[in-house]
Computed example of a mutant assay.
Amino acid sequence: MSRIAPLQPPYPPEIQAQFDAIMRGAPPLRLFRVLAGHPRAWTKFRAGSLLDRGPLGLREREIVIDRTCALTGCAYEWGVHVATFADAARLTDEQVTATTVGDADAPCWSAAEQAMIAAVDALHHRATLSDDEFAALSAHYDDAKILEIILLCGFYRTVSYLANGLALQPEENAATFPRVS
């Protein structure tokens, strides 16, 4: 169980409408139900979130999110994203595993994806990009996409803090971190 109890149905109409808009017919995630029980936290989360489609394609977006969540050890959010989006993002099993282990230069990634993953890794470990890392990213992505990559890293680090700090149990159909020997 979560360290802070999630809301239980039936939800107030305004909360149900917000869940419906975000989840598009699926049951609300445990993380959302915990936050929605605390109006200020829920409002801030939704206002600062990147739950909508941005300038990155689904594949790029999911690589950034999966790698960020893996680096923070957030099995909860990584599992939700892999279960929900990996197939649609055309991530192979090898690539899903590579979001959790290995370096950015793994051969399963394109040159653009390698630059993006290197940026995610740098932001996670140093909270900055070197000039060379930024130049590598700029060779493949325009300014709007670079800003989105940085924003996603920060937002999903926050999501990871929430899920890990609250000790959220995995969602029912979530993926689990791969076992690597």
Rank of each mutant, 00 (worst) to 15 (best):
C74H: 02
L91F: 01
L51G: 10
F177C: 07
A139Q: 03
A119T: 10
A115R: 02
R3W: 13
P107M: 02
I117Q: 05
Y156G: 07
L56I: 06
S138E: 13
G102F: 07
Y156E: 06
D103P: 11
A98V: 07
E148G: 03
V82Y: 09
G73L: 09
L123G: 07
A36L: 04
D52A: 12
G165R: 05
W42Q: 00
S181D: 13
R24Y: 00
V101E: 14
E133L: 01
A127P: 00
A175H: 09
E14S: 13
A175Y: 10
V180T: 05
D103H: 07
R126E: 12
E94R: 12
E94N: 04
H124I: 02
A139M: 01
A174R: 04
R157C: 09
W78Q: 05
A144V: 05
P178G: 03
T84E: 12
T43F: 02
P170W: 09
I149W: 10
V64E: 09
R40H: 09
A167D: 14
V101D: 12
A5V: 12
Q169T: 05
Y76Q: 09
E14F: 04
E60Q: 15
D93S: 11
H125G: 07
L137R: 04
G57P: 03
L151H: 13
A47W: 01
E94L: 08
A144N: 11
A47L: 11
L58P: 03
E77M: 04
R179Q: 13
G73M: 08
I63P: 03
L137I: 08
Y76L: 11
D52K: 10
A17N: 04
D93R: 10
K145E: 14
P12R: 13
G79I: 09
Q114S: 13
A98Q: 13
L123D: 04
L58R: 08
A144D: 14
A26K: 07
T128I: 08
A88R: 15
A26R: 12
L58S: 08
D121G: 02
G102I: 05
K44Y: 09
A26F: 06
D66W: 08
R157Q: 13
D121E: 14
A167F: 02
P12V: 06
Q95H: 08
N164H: 04
F45P: 03
Y76H: 11
L31H: 02
F32E: 08
R126M: 00
V96Y: 05
I146T: 11
A21Y: 00
W78S: 01
V96G: 02
A26H: 05
A119L: 03
R30S: 12
R90Y: 09
A175V: 02
I15M: 11
A135L: 08
R24V: 06
T97L: 12
T99S: 14
A163T: 15
L168F: 03
